[in-house]
Computed example of a mutant assay.
Amino acid sequence: MNKENIDEKELKDTQQSTESDDNAAEMGDTPDNLDEIKEGVESKSEQNDQAEASETEKKLLRLEDELAESKDKYLRLYSEFENFRRRTAKEKLEMVQTANEDLMQALIPIIDDFERAEKSFEDEKTDLEAAKEGVQLIYNKFKKVLEQKGLKAMEGKEGMDFDPEFHEAITQIPAPKKNLKGKVVDVVEKGYMLKEKVIRYAKVVIGN
């Protein structure tokens, strides 16, 4: 074997040895890289879990705050409603108890007039005609007060059509005239209305 062949062989052996060392080095580094990658993945996963847990906790705290706020609003509204209900009930009771207060105040002066008239009748020197005139004035005053409060007498006269919405037939008699058959012959007692409501039906006699 000549010198050139020996040099080529040594060169090949050297290259093979170098490649073997490089491969061995690469194979030796692989386990260390896998551990680092694994640790990195685990660390990132833990960070993600912590971030998700933190976000969930924030949402939970926000929901708790909203629930507390809603509960507070509900309690305030309930308290206001209870106060309104009690106040309304009290006002309604007072209204029922004093419903006729205005009417009573309007009637008191008329009572005073009647008392003065009564005293005047005790005096033998009282002019009877003047006393009658005084009573008529009191009556007119009394009637005016009632009308101002919405009371009005129903119109009732002979020959009217009988209307069950306003009349109460207390009896029937033979009609004195043919044109009075089924009509009102006589009004025994006036009917009255308060505003537009009938509070007393007129008692009438009907011809048959």
Rank of each mutant, 00 (worst) to 15 (best):
E64T: 12
F121D: 09
D7G: 04
I108N: 11
E10S: 09
D127G: 02
E147C: 03
K157Q: 13
E57Q: 15
D65N: 13
Q47E: 13
M95V: 07
N179Y: 06
R116L: 09
L60H: 15
K178E: 13
N33F: 01
Y78T: 13
D113M: 05
E36Y: 01
N5R: 12
F166Q: 14
A175M: 08
K195V: 11
F114G: 05
E124C: 06
F166M: 14
Y192A: 09
D7M: 09
N5G: 07
D127K: 03
E118C: 05
G40N: 08
E196M: 11
S54P: 08
A51R: 14
G150Y: 01
K181C: 00
D29E: 01
D163E: 15
K149Y: 05
D65V: 10
H167V: 04
D22V: 06
G156D: 07
G150S: 01
K149G: 03
E158T: 11
F84A: 09
A153T: 10
V188S: 13
K152C: 01
D127P: 03
K12H: 08
E69W: 09
E4L: 08
T126Q: 05
L194V: 12
L180G: 04
D72M: 12
D113Q: 07
D113Y: 02
G182F: 03
I206D: 04
A89C: 02
R86F: 08
Y192S: 08
I108Y: 14
Q50I: 13
K149F: 11
M160I: 01
E168M: 10
G159W: 10
M27I: 03
I170R: 03
L151V: 01
D123Y: 05
V185I: 04
D32W: 00
Y78P: 08
Q97Y: 12
K141G: 10
G159D: 08
